[in-house]
């Protein structure tokens, strides 16, 4: 192809005009911070781990009444201890998976493999968030249920409600629970959507080639 031959000739002839760097220019570059998506992805993962750990722990640390209530609800101590151990085990598992997955990201892999390792890491964070959202949803529902069956105040309030009002209350509770989950989910989608837009586009393009 004529045009491409011309281009090739020009391409090989060309020196970077006025851009040639000396070693003096290069040294400081080695110590600058990277702003690659892998790094940002890593920070987001850590932030999400910390966020959910805090969300799960803050009520215990700060509110004695919450603690008492929980103890009241989970009268079965073993169940409560079991659940706590389970939730920490899950956190440790995710940290381990995340660490392992981050380790496999290598800039010297082929483009496709590199993209796949990054997407895998992102998937692990996604599952972690999903797990937390499900757990949050479930514990909200269980919390409501226990309050309305065990908490004397709530029970007496329920007894005074007509059927219509009860239905309304249930609907409001369902609405609050799902709104909470949807907002977090959207926020999450937005962050990753923006961060990985380019990667996703290019990965799709490479996949298309193999199809």
């Amino acid at each position: 192809m004529d045009e491409l031959d011309l281009l090739k000739k020009d391409w090989n002839k060309k020196q970077p005009d006025g851009k040639t760097l000396s070693s003096k220019d290069i040294y400081p570059m080695l110590h600058k911070k990277s702003s690659s998506i892998v790094k940002i992805l890593f920070y987001i993962s850590v932030a999400e781990l910390v966020f959910w750990i805090l969300i799960n722990s803050i009520p215990f640390v700060y509110s004695k009444s919450y603690k008492d209530k929980l103890e009241h609800i989970y009268q079965n101590d073993n169940l409560f201890i079991g659940l706590t151990i389970f939730s920490y085990a899950v956190i440790i598992l995710f940290i381990y998976l995340l660490y392992k997955s981050q380790k496999t990201i290598s800039v010297t892999d082929s483009a496709k493999k590199l993209m796949e390792s990054i997407l895998r890491t992102r998937k692990i964070v996604k599952y972690y968030v999903l797990y937390n959202l499900v757990m949050a949803g479930v514990s909200l529902i269980i919390g409501f249920y226990y309050s309305f069956t065990h908490d004397p105040e709530a029970v007496s309030m329920l007894e005074n409600l007509s059927n219509n009002r009860l239905l309304l209350l249930v609907l409001v509770l369902i609405f609050i629970t799902s709104a909470f989950i949807v907002i977090i989910w959207l926020f999450y989608k937005l962050i990753y959507g923006l961060l990985l837009r380019r990667l996703n586009k290019n990965y799709k393009e490479l996949k298309k080639l193999e199809a």
Binding site: S35, S36, I37, V38, I40, V107, T108, D109, S110, A111, L114, M115, I118, L195, R198, L199, N202
Partner: peptide, 26 residues
């Protein structure tokens, strides 16, 4: 540090350079 020298430095650069441009760079 992981560059072993079993490929040419320039070949290795192509890969890292393109990977950065296509995937890592924001």
């Amino acid at each position: 540090p992981k560059f072993r020298g079993d490929s040419k430095f320039s070949t290795w650069m192509y890969r890292v350079g393109l990977n950065t441009a296509i995937t890592l760079y924001r």
